[in-house]
């Protein structure tokens, strides 16, 4: 469904992504893992055009184009099929949870307010935030803010949702409630790309795992095989370290 080929991206003179190929199929949950600074966020930002790539090809269903030659219109159209959940939520601070979710429907998509209102209620229900609909972000816990942000991304029914470390700003308790929502989405067949440090989540929920290091994809595989029998030495080292870390936390 979504695919990039030969993706290159840099900040100034520093090359961050080097010849990355990346593909997500319909209904798939793909976990992207790798140490800090390996380029995971940059990959998601290139996929959603928040960063300009240096070169590469983007394919979305039957749309295919050089990623550096997208028109404003192309970007608008492709983004309308994507949801993006940020590490630090990025809720609009001047709007309540409800208004945050309505915004993509009523302002962006000119949907009938009564209709949008119904969808918002459904989304709030889905992420367990109905009782906080009229709260402003400043009045919510991190976990509640992230669940609201997920509802905002879900509301316009995107074909794929990109998550960038959705729980790394949260403590374990709050992490659990956000992961529970994401698990539910996965079960419903939502197509998701999840950058995460939560190895157990990747293991349990993702169908496929991608391991990045220094801006290249080092290894990828079905999560059942990936965690039990990683092929590359660097993957093994990374997994060993992160599993250890997790033992400490628990």
């Amino acid at each position: 469904m979504l695919e990039v080929k030969n993706l290159y991206c840099s900040y100034g003179s520093m090359e961050v992504l080097k010849n990355v190929d990346f593909k997500v199929d319909n209904g798939e949950v793909v976990a992207v893992i790798g140490s800090s600074g390996s380029g995971k966020t940059t990959l998601l930002r290139c996929l959603s055009f928040l960063n300009k790539a240096n070169s590469g090809t983007i394919i979305f269903d039957d749309f295919k184009k050089d990623i550096t030659r997208l028109k404003k219109n192309d970007i608008m159209k492709l983004r309308s099929k994507m949801g993006y959940v940020f590490q630090d939520f990025n809720l609009f601070r001047n709007m309540t949870v409800r208004q945050n979710i309505l915004e993509g429907l009523v302002t962006a998509r000119k949907m009938d307010p009564t209709e949008a209102w119904k969808i918002v209620n459904e989304m709030l229900e889905k992420v367990g935030m109905s009782h906080r609909a009229e709260y402003y972000p400043a009045q919510l816990s991190g976990g509640q803010q992230q669940r609201a942000a997920i509802a905002r991304a879900l509301a316009y029914n995107p074909e794929i949702i990109l998550f960038d470390e959705p729980t790394s700003a949260l403590d374990p308790e709050l992490t659990r409630e956000v992961l529970a929502v994401m698990k539910r989405l996965a079960k419903e067949g939502t197509t998701m790309v999840v950058v995460t440090h939560e190895m157990s989540f990747a293991q349990e929920v993702a169908g496929r795992v991608i391991f990045m290091e220094n801006g290249v994809v080092v290894e990828e595989g079905r999560s059942s095989e990936f965690f039990t029998s990683p092929k590359e030495e660097s993957t093994r080292r990374f997994l060993r370290l992160s599993m250890q870390e997790q033992d400490y936390v628990i």
Partner: peptide, 30 residues
Amino acid sequence: VPQGQIEAGYMIGLTYGQIMRRIVIPQAAR
């Protein structure tokens, strides 16, 4: 006004003008 909110605005399909009017300027006014 944090850049992240502007990016979030783009991702949910708002135009630059809408982001300014509905998100940035109200917060800047405050």
